[in-house]
Amino acid sequence: MVDDTRPLRFGILGAARIAPAALLAPALRHPEAEVVAVAARDRTRGERFARRHGIARVHDDYPALLADPEVDAVYIPLPNGLHGRWTRAALAAGKHVLCEKPFTADAAEAREIAAAATGSGLVVMEAFHYRYHPLVAAAEEVIAAGELGPLRHVEASICFPLPRFSDIRYDYGLAGGALMDAGCYAVHMARVFGGEEPEVVSARAKLRDPKVDRAMLADLRFPSGHTGRVRCSMWSVDLLRVAVTVVGAKGRMRIVNPLLPHQGHLLSVRTDTRRFRRRFTRRTSYDFQLDAFTDAVLRGAPVPTGPDDSVATMSVVDAVYAAAGLPPRVPA
């Protein structure tokens, strides 16, 4: 049980580049959260990271951080293939978990972690931070209100250039690939805005090597009959494309930059009866994510990106890889 009279105390597993934006800066702005410890594979690197970011304690390794009684929750920004292993270990140590996407290497591992989380009394959240920004809630309201009419098509694209092919995100042994790194966002967005769990109709990949995709295009079908498309890349002719389009019988909605809305975004809706364009707060999606996590731990609020949601996302990811003729990713 976390003492709700003091801030929620986080430890970070790994001195990852994403940690400052995803947790450290939001925690400095949040009255109910603080980062108190870090562990890295190399203690010297962990010490440098701690000095740079004002973290009080550096542990020799990940198990030592998990054993720290002064840590209530852990943030896991490790390579994809290690997410499941250390989420499992954190749960065994009695820690709440904020785990970077993708939640696990594949759907089987996600189901295993979801089972471990069930009944534990611990909060486990996959860090799909975009989901917590008011932009997404507003877009969902447009769909739920029927302004677009019955849905016809949902398309989500997350494409950005990563030409450094030595990057771990291209490493099959660490569950790498464009679909895992960029595409898991697009898959999740298709699920959120499509409103149902889709089946994969077809997929085709552009390859970095025989097992690792640098780009992926997948076509989906939802139970109600509308279609979907997921497009992602870390290196392709689509150098930069970050958007969602939802088409209904009565109109169309487009979201520009749903991934990092604090860096600029736009929600535009055009229907048979009206047109409008809206922008929302520039407060970061990571800040809203931390709000949701602390609310869940301290006050029992629901978590939209919990383990069951992660199982659904990873099931689609596995199906896309299968349809593209590629092997599923495996835990490291």
Rank of each mutant, 00 (worst) to 15 (best):
M1S: 04
R6A: 10
F10K: 02
L13W: 09
G14Y: 13
R17L: 09
A22Q: 08
A22P: 02
L23T: 01
P26G: 03
L28Q: 15
L28V: 03
R29A: 15
E32T: 01
E32Q: 08
A39H: 01
A40E: 05
T44M: 04
G46H: 05
E47G: 03
G54S: 07
A56E: 14
R57L: 06
D60W: 06
D60M: 09
D61E: 13
Y62I: 04
A64D: 09
A67E: 14
D68F: 12
P69T: 10
E70T: 11
D72A: 02
V74E: 07
I76F: 13
I76Y: 14
L78H: 12
P79S: 15
N80E: 12
G81I: 08
R85V: 09
T87E: 09
T87Y: 10
A90E: 03
V97C: 02
L98G: 02
L98P: 05
E100T: 10
K101D: 10
P102M: 10
F103N: 02
F103H: 06
A107N: 13
E109C: 05
A110P: 15
A114R: 15
A115R: 11
A116K: 07
A117I: 03
A117Q: 03
T118Y: 11
G121K: 06
V123A: 14
M125R: 06
E126Y: 11
H133P: 00
L135F: 06
E141Y: 08
V142G: 05
V142N: 10
A144C: 06
G146Y: 05
L148W: 05
L148N: 02
V154C: 10
V154E: 11
S157Q: 06
S157R: 13
I158V: 15
C159L: 12
F160A: 07
F160H: 14
P161Y: 10
Y170K: 07
Y170A: 04
D171W: 09
Y172S: 04
Y172E: 06
G176P: 06
G176M: 04
H188E: 09
H188D: 14
A190P: 11
R191Y: 12
V192T: 11
F193H: 11
G195C: 13
E196Q: 15
P198N: 10
S202H: 15
A205N: 11
K206V: 12
R208N: 09
V212T: 13
D213Y: 15
A215Q: 09
L217P: 02
D219R: 14
L220C: 13
C232H: 07
W235M: 07
S236E: 04
V237A: 06
D238N: 01
L240T: 08
R241G: 00
R241W: 14
V246D: 01
G251C: 00
L260Q: 06
L260E: 07
L266T: 03
L266H: 12
S268Y: 02
V269Y: 03
R270Q: 04
T271H: 09
F276S: 00
F276Q: 01
R277D: 14
R277N: 05
F280H: 00
T281F: 04
T281I: 00
R282Y: 06
F288I: 00
F293L: 00
A296C: 03
L298D: 00
T305L: 02
P307S: 04
V311R: 13
T313W: 08
T313H: 15
D318F: 13
D318P: 13
D318W: 15
D318H: 14
A322F: 12
A322L: 11
A324V: 08
A324Y: 11
L326F: 14
L326V: 06
P327S: 08
P331E: 13
